[in-house]
Amino acid sequence: MIAWAEPVASTLLRAIAWIALAPLVPGIIHRTKAWIAGRRGPPILQLYYDLARLWRKEVVWSSVASPMHLLGPAVAWVAVLGAALLVPTDAAHAGLDLPGSAILFVYLLALARFGTAAAAMDTGSAFEGMGAAREVSYAVLSEVALVTGLLALSVHGGSASLAHMFDASGGVGSALLAGGLFVVLLAENCRVPFDDPNTHLELTMVHEVMVLDHSGPPLAVILHGASLKLAIFSVLLVKAVVPLGQHSPLVAVAVLGAAAAGVGVGVGIAESLMARLAFRRVPLLLTTAFLLNLFALLVEVEGGRLR
């Protein structure tokens, strides 16, 4: 057995697991929303059917589009998958253990957003430009909250590598982080109350308007990337809040999966109960998320001193 074969095989396995399981999360959210509204709703595997259908369709190219129109979704998908590989899925077989991978994680997500936004603006459509502008202006605020949350985690875990910083205490700091990271999850994935994935009114769409000109396999890649990002944030939230370290790897993975599905149900409930926020109220909510994460950081720093 060659020495590098085992880590490579485990990484490949995790990549396949991420790719295969990610479309379940939107399915769970839709199912929860339908259940609360008293409908039967689409099957949980609906996104798989959609992706398969889109993959078979031909691509319609805009006559003014440049190669960026295709490159954007591809770059975004690869970047999101890279970010997914950095997130550890259980205690024993941690993710790719790079020093400072928390920073790489944030930058990969930013790169993915840049790819989608650049591809959206490529056709020169005013609506898509508007959607891209809104997505990026939300990101300015939600990224601050995300980085603060990761900072709190890394102070707690004593490492800037995602593989070592999830050592959840289950205390006050975790409760604050849960609130903050949940809002970040909703904002980063363009869910209600920041954006309504079901709306088809151009003036109110944010993420959906950016993908209007894409069709066929590139659209499938964008949709899959979005579900992958949702799965990453669900796992991140669970890892940050639920103490998993003392369990055996198999139990940890099972708990993680169940809890990530629980986050999907939570998002579905939140979306059913809340209406979309007025655009001018969004900064207040994102600032609240930032402050929640900031106070989680403060709890970590102060808690270490007071104890």
Partner: peptide, 21 residues
Amino acid sequence: GFVPSLLLGALATILAMLLSR
């Protein structure tokens, strides 16, 4: 505004922590 006053309040809280040390 609400966002600046929130940030000022958080800043005050953190400064109070640092000062009381």
